[in-house]
Design a protein around this nucleic acid. Structure first.
Length: 494
RNA sequence: GGCCUUAUCGUCUAACGGUUAGGACAUCGGCUUUUCAAGCCGGUAAUCCGGGUUCGAUUCCCGGUAGGGUCACCA
């Protein structure tokens, strides 16, 4: 039996704590997580904090909060520990030193005698001569003993073309110029990414390395290090980039990528975000667009990861979010809306949790995300459910009635009066949108449907845009409906 | 510039040599209980270009073009 097939899958997400994470980072984490979950494997969160200059305080907490929000959980990590602890590279310096010594003993690592400035001179010279800069062209003949204060460089033993197989890209290759004596351990004692991640992945038993395709170019470096250390190559999985709007450039912080948690604040559902992110760079085939996290894990397959980048399209995210909003059980929907209602609305005279529940479906169909909901609140599109519209009194909207007569207020008033008399005949318990409609339908036919319905809707909502009057009547209830109608009649008569 | 790599509607994508090139978002039009939203119905819209291979290319090969990535004591 092939041991590779039976070997437990171990993947990891390894961000550096240099500020917030964005959708690109999370998408990478998402695939690694889904792959591990699907195979009953292990997913590790590891913090690559070897660049102390770029480190931003609070980043780790932010990464953790971001992953948790979208629903990604890990089996091992800095917050929960695990068999391969610690999970912060800054706490694993002994490991790197151990392998560095092995390389030194093998004659495959040496102390870099030059200063940064001296290396820079070499680099500039190469630039001027329009040829690629390679440190190995300047490899010192008798490097000093490494004292830990100078950079330790890897010595490329045999410069050659590397070829390898990537689970997404297939067969890849790179020329010898991709290989160089790169730095293993920096002058400050911390390892570089190139070195540290290889040691960590080895010690943590990572079987599949999933990362962005910006690492294709440096893969030969990793490969040469695996060879030097006689490590079996893990599976390599290159993920396509997420492009920023315009589609011209890989999405990154510099080009306006948002803090991932902003999407949480803007009212996107985590399962909608996961759904959307999953589909940038992967597709299960077929026409299905809306999937749950469980379905995603179930469907996920590395073979269906794309090779070319995809653009982040917020309009589609909005639509997906709306679809997921519709899928939510009613109590979750109520909770969602409630979270966006300011206190002053909750203190309105007719506010109650039952009332909130009754408006939830109709509010929900009018929004795609939290931003829309906030806008509705600000526009007064919610307030009128809980209190009499106050701006009825200026007659402004009634003025715009299409009824041409000079005495249009009287006419409108008579329509409303008749509507009231009809609605009085509907009992309290039967006062729903269908019965209300049935009751006045014939009458609206008689005098002109819009001429009756339109002032009725305005009397109930106080706004020029609102749901239809029957729904409004049902939500408001018989007493309040008649109340508002009578109120409007009173005003029209002044 | 060297090296690597990519290419289907505006966008996300389906197709794994044979389809009227399908779906979704967006857009446009219509319907609906005068509005708005939702919903339903319908429309516009794509295989980058040029060569091969093949009876047949979106699909395979080569070249071009355009895009992306990378060439750090960053990851």
């Amino acid at each position: 039996m092939d041991t590779n097939l039976t070997k437990k899958v171990v993947t990891r997400f390894a961000p550096s704590p240099t500020g917030f994470v964005h959708v690109g980072n999370i998408r990478t984490a998402l695939y690694a997580w889904a792959f591990a979950k699907k195979n009953n494997g292990t997913f590790i969160l590891r913090i690559e904090d070897t660049d102390k200059a770029r480190e931003v305080e609070g980043s780790i907490e932010h990464v953790i909060a971001s992953l948790k929000w979208v629903g990604i959980e890990w089996n091992e990590g800095p917050d929960i520990g695990g068999p391969n602890a610690p999970y912060k590279q800054s706490e694993r310096l002994d490991s790197y030193l151990k392998y560095a010594k092995i390389l030194i003993d093998k004659g495959l690592a040496y102390s870099d005698p030059y200063t940064e400035e001296e290396v820079e001179v070499f680099r500039n010279k190469a630039d001027e001569e329009k040829r690629p800069f390679l440190y190995r062209d300047h490899r010192p003949e008798n490097p000093p003993i490494w004292d830990g204060k100078k950079p330790l460089r890897f010595k490329v033993a045999n410069v050659k073309s590397y070829e390898w197989d990537d689970m997404v890209r297939g067969h890849l290759k790179a020329g010898p110029e991709a290989l160089d004596d790169f730095i293993l351990i920096k002058g400050d004692g911390y390892p570089t990414y190139n070195f540290a991640h290889i040691i960590d992945d080895l010690e943590m038993g990572v079987t599949h390395i999933m990362r962005g395709d910006e690492f294709i170019s440096s893969t030969p470096k990793f490969l040469s290090l695996y060879d030097a250390l006689e490590i079996k190559r893990p599976e390599l999985v290159m993920l396509p980039p997420i492009m920023g709007s315009g589609g011209k450039k890989k999405l990154g912080k510099r080009d306006g990528a948002k803090d991932f948690l902003e999407y949480k604040n803007e009212g996107y559902l985590p399962e909608a975000m996961m759904n959307f992110l999953a589909f940038i760079g992967w597709n299960p085939g077929g026409d299905k667009e809306i999937i749950t996290p469980a379905e995603f894990i179930n469907l996920f397959d590395i073979k269906q990861i794309h090779i070319s980048g995809g653009q982040f399209n917020e309009e589609k995210l909005d639509w997906i979010n709306h679809e997921h909003l519709k899928l939510l059980p009613i109590d979750k929907q109520v909770e969602y809306i409630s979270n966006y209602l300011p206190e002053n609305i909750k203190k309105l005279p007719n506010y109650s949790s039952d009332k909130l529940k009754s408006i939830t479906p109709i509010v929900l169909e009018r929004i795609q995300n939290g931003k829309d909901l906030v806008e509705m609140v600000n526009n007064g599109d919610i307030t009128y459910y809980f209190s009499q519209p106050t701006y009825l009194k200026d007659l402004l909207f009634f003025k715009s009635s299409k009824i041409p007569q000079d005495n249009k207020y009287e006419i409108l008033s008579s329509y409303l009066t008749h509507t009231v008399s009809l609605l009085k005949e509907v009992s309290d318990s039967d006062f729903n949108k269908d019965n209300v409609k049935d009751k006045i339908w014939a009458y609206t036919d008689e005098v002109g449907r819009g001429d009756v319905l339109w002032p009725m809707r305005f009397a109930l909502s106080g706004l020029d845009k609102s749901p239809d009057p029957f729904i409004l009547a049902e939500i408001l209830g018989k007493e309040e409906t008649l109340n508002r109608l009578n109120n409007a009649i009173k005003i029209l008569k002044i």
